[in-house]
Design a protein around this nucleic acid. Sequence first.
DNA 1: TGACTCTAGTTCAACGATGTACCTTGTGCC
DNA 2: GGCACAAGGTACATCGTTGAACTAGAGTCA
Lengths: 352, 352
Amino acid sequence: MMSGPGERPRNATMRDIAARLGVSIKTVSNVVNDRPNVGPGTRERVQDAIRELNYRPQVSAQQMRTGTSGLITLAIPSLAGTYFSELAQAFADEAQRRGRSIMLHSTAAGREEERSVLAGFTRVLGDGVVFNPLLIGEDVLAHLGRTILPTVFIGEHVEEADLPAGSDYVRTDNQSAAHDAAAHLLSHGRRHLAYLGALESTEAQQEHSTSRLRLGGFHRALAAAGVMEPVVQAVPAWSQEGGISAVRTLMRQHPEIDGIVCGNDDLARGALLSLHALGIEVPGKVSVIGHDNILEAPFTSPPLTTVDPDKRTLAATVLDLLLERIEGYDGPPRVVEAPYQLVERGSTAAHG
Amino acid sequence: MMSGPGERPRNATMRDIAARLGVSIKTVSNVVNDRPNVGPGTRERVQDAIRELNYRPQVSAQQMRTGTSGLITLAIPSLAGTYFSELAQAFADEAQRRGRSIMLHSTAAGREEERSVLAGFTRVLGDGVVFNPLLIGEDVLAHLGRTILPTVFIGEHVEEADLPAGSDYVRTDNQSAAHDAAAHLLSHGRRHLAYLGALESTEAQQEHSTSRLRLGGFHRALAAAGVMEPVVQAVPAWSQEGGISAVRTLMRQHPEIDGIVCGNDDLARGALLSLHALGIEVPGKVSVIGHDNILEAPFTSPPLTTVDPDKRTLAATVLDLLLERIEGYDGPPRVVEAPYQLVERGSTAAHG
DNA sequence: TGACTCTAGTTCAACGATGTACCTTGTGCC
DNA sequence: GGCACAAGGTACATCGTTGAACTAGAGTCA
């Protein structure tokens, strides 16, 4: 201990411990892994030596011998954006609970970057991959014989038929979620609904198809209720500021609007602020509903009703599937629907 | 290719390639690592086989042999919070540029979790650690003989004297940053400044000491300018909603205020919204300055002047130091001051 | 021709941990 | 006394990769 400055010492190995005590390496291994056939005295002496030499098992050696490292790669577009950063946090927490570590791989660079995730990153590293593709299409997936590592896809951009062998899919049904959000407003007597979140530019392409799906669900709900000509309001970006300016435009052009379904909670926050500034009561005159249930959603004014994708359960489900595959399951691709839930707060209310 | 469903095949190894071609494993290794002493014909045949068998080198075996894996652990409190999630993204990007991967370790669980980071996570994994401690104190660091892996500390909670052997420190000088922010307002003729961001509860303890340092810098700037009795406004949390309500209180109790230094940009965004709602012009009547330069700062209304800690440069600096240590440097701890920069936007302006 | 060098390889050991198979004691029991 | 048997170990091979050391053959040059 307190070795002080000097040569950076090699980390202690089982060999060091064995040598110091005059026992075999295997006995040390047995102590570390809580295996039988070690006398209580020996066990204790080994444990003392482990503490003294500050021994830690070396994961790479374990992986060589046993085939697993406890490492899981999480490949998502970017942490910039509330949803993905909260999702990553959920994965990190759930992985830690299971004694696993998360490797973060950002695919913001686009299609090539995503393809390289599937190709195995040019190096085999870790035991499995959680992958949220945005750009990779059927063409790529369909020609992928089999993933090199156990993989679970997440998101909404994967066709079930394209799932490669050795992978599973936890699907988020954004279309239904948006449908339910709109239906919620309709059930409260709102009839003049707007969808806030269409993107003009393909620049923010990442949210684009999410937006398209949510818009689809919105239309479906309105069609089912016989409400015609719903209003679709474009935004410059899925951000709070985008919501603020867009809602100003929206209410000027469509003063009859009494309910707004927002593409995500950042937009919804902007909508709330804008409505407040315009002196329009929420939920008295206009109801607002968001998507994602971000951490701040309960603290907006009024508190935001939103669709909760339950990131923690999603992460847990995904990791359970992945760990099953890592531990040997090799059946056909499984598809699991990720649950979501409408969380009702103050920004929506029944209408006289 | 297209192996289809069936037994999950072992990943191909160099041995497989060598066997198929009747060459030695070492020759395959030489091709993979672009080493000389391989004839052009042989090289090509090996490359073809690599493609056919979809071979990828196995990092754990490489690490065993060479001692490095290309993996770096990033231990930060949590991704919930704009600053840390943008910081993590910066690290992920910079690491990818350097051909390294980031392992994410969340220390939100607190002191014990932080201690275990220093103790080496109970398993040796990866080549080095980037660690932003919040709670670990001198007592722990000082008794740490030497870190088990090369480590670079970041943040502001480390005393230089306590740095363990084998580590470096990239310090963020929050006190000076807050000082400069206040001085900026003073130089524009503002005299009635408030600091927004003191925390009553120790619940949000993570930001607590950051807040304390920034408040210290604020006081220092005012004292130097001879401004007495600055106002310090408490907030329930360092969030936008916290800023909104706190600024309402602040302006009611202190209508003379003409400049607000905010603990972070989320608070500052709240301040801008609140001031707008109160009909107080920014920057006409009150100037607002934030901290962190979050991605949305340029898009607030008016655009937010803020202190930019330049997360990308920080990440690059940290990784360079860490990689030097990983590659063998074993000198005494180095301390580097992370630069920051005041980004002037519309929320501050000179005062008549 | 002989001494040398260069190219294109080969063989071997080693990194650290662990599963399998084997060995050595001491004890209990007939 | 002889044997079985368990408890508490040891010895060895192995996972995939790479550095060091070696070799066989061809070309160079005095």
